[in-house]
Design a protein around this nucleic acid. Structure first.
Lengths: 124, 124
DNA sequence: AGGTTGGTCAACCATTTGGTTGAATATGCG
DNA sequence: CGCATATTCAACCAAATGGTTGACCAACCT
């Protein structure tokens, strides 16, 4: 069972989701988690590994990301897999784009960005 | 300077600015303020007018937006003018774009968004 | 000078946030 | 079965957030 049914994302509930999404990505730990999941799906324990905080804390962060729709979690056996759900960022992205025409993403720059800024903390 | 930045945006100082920017726009009041300033520069009192909260509260919100670089404030005479600074959202936007190829801005969608989500509270 | 307007400051308050620990619940394994 | 592993739950805590009020300062207008 995926905790976050896809159909719900686009119905009325979408409005205040901007709150939830922006609040979720305002935290550096959670941004790092998202960056990690960009490369691959991960189990909760593996997500937690590079961070200097308890598993329970990471578990809470994952709940917040899930409620924001930014990831989904599926339990297979005793491990719960976390999967990035990039679509959830679309509405937020659209909102931001309204404030200026940002040039199309420079992938080189983005990659450097990932390295210096978004990598899990043990790499900084 | 709008076009220079790639190198600058991604180097050190930029890091915690993502925190600040995302935290700033996570608040609906502040998003409304930004939307209002999208149309025109405004004095603090005028910004506050449509909201059901004290001037001091709005003043605090404006400080937060200023610290995030999302607006600037200039005092002329006794009135302090607030001006949108859209560039501050660029790094944040780039970060988000990394999570999916969002189609180039859909203006219709954005306009609907403005109406339902970003209009000052007296219009909702 | 004296009063009004624009805005911030300071102290305070309730709620939320991000973390901790220890116990609890599943699930898998020998 | 009995134990280890994966994850969450519950209670707690300190700090940050979003708001209030009342005093305050600065600038403009007679």
């Amino acid at each position: 069972m995926v905790d976050q049914p896809a159909a719900l994302w686009f119905s009325g509930a979408m409005s205040n989701d901007l709150d939830t999404v922006f609040a979720a990505i305002a935290d550096p730990t959670r941004r790092s988690i998202l960056a990690m999941l960009l490369e691959d799906d991960m189990a909760v324990t593996d997500v937690a590994e590079p961070f200097d905080m308890s598993l329970a804390a990471i578990s809470k962060h994952l709940v917040i990301l899930t409620k924001a729709g930014l990831i989904s979690q599926e339990k297979r056996g005793r491990v719960k897999w976390c999967k990035l759900e990039p679509d959830a960022m679309r509405a937020a992205s659209v909102w931001m784009q309204g404030f200026g025409q940002f040039e199309p993403v420079n992938l080189d720059a983005f990659e450097r960005f990932l390295e210096t800024e978004l990598a899990p903390p043990d790499e900084r």
